[in-house]
Amino acid sequence: MDANPIPSTAIEKEDKKILQSIGLSYRFPNASKFTFTDINLKAYKDQLVAIVGPTGTGKSTLLRNLAYLIPPTSGTVLLEGKPVTKPSSRISLVHQSIATFPWMTALENVKLSLKGKMDNEQATKNAQKMLDLVGLRGVEDNYPKEMSGGMRQRVAIARSLVASPSVLLMDEPFVHLDELTATKLRDEIYKIVFNPRNTLKAAILVSHNLHEVVHLADYVYVMNGSPATVIDTFKIDLPRPRSERTSNFYDYIDRIMKGLDVTPQKA
């Protein structure tokens, strides 16, 4: 185990560190013990970092600590070297339960992030651009209830991206989608996230689905224990676009499972 898990290489220079947590710990109000302690996490430029761990290790809470939607009990979050002290649209969260406002059309949902930050015409242009990026051209005027779960999650992603964030946090974004929709969106998400048409520099994904994690992530942090800590890290060194048919794909899954202390099931 490495206390400072991400090795410093020529590519991963300190000046490319986008989001970093130092000694992050969290205890719920009135709880007797910490949910997790001493989380040191780094997300470098153009990297997708995944966090995995059993239920109850506080992965979703950790994401909210990183976005400062829930302030950590102790520790620091740095965004491009500067401390984060309040929620900001520069660190944008996509929820597990897909959250769209039912009284707003797809376009209005996306424009919401821009209210008060630019004039309406410019906001409409930017929102339309993001809806194009997530593949929702032509359904701008549809209400959420007229859309599938996959389309709604695209609206939520577009709403996050249009706010010009540097970091996108995704809390099990595909868990409520059917497998076909999830697979399709999973295939597209990396292209969407690291598309030059948006401002993102890094993304962090929480997931229980190890196939998803190996499919998408550059680095994986494994959390376990009580209170939880980072017990292992992996660098996923597979070429993109990735396929489950690649021979090493299941090696990574087995290694992460071993880290989680879960016996892999034979196919």
Binding site: A67, S92, A99
Partner: peptide, 13 residues
């Protein structure tokens, strides 16, 4: 829902 509150705070509305 708590998600709506998080969206409001996240986007600094």
């Amino acid at each position: 829902p708590s998600e709506f509150w998080e969206v409001m705070r996240n986007h600094e509305l």
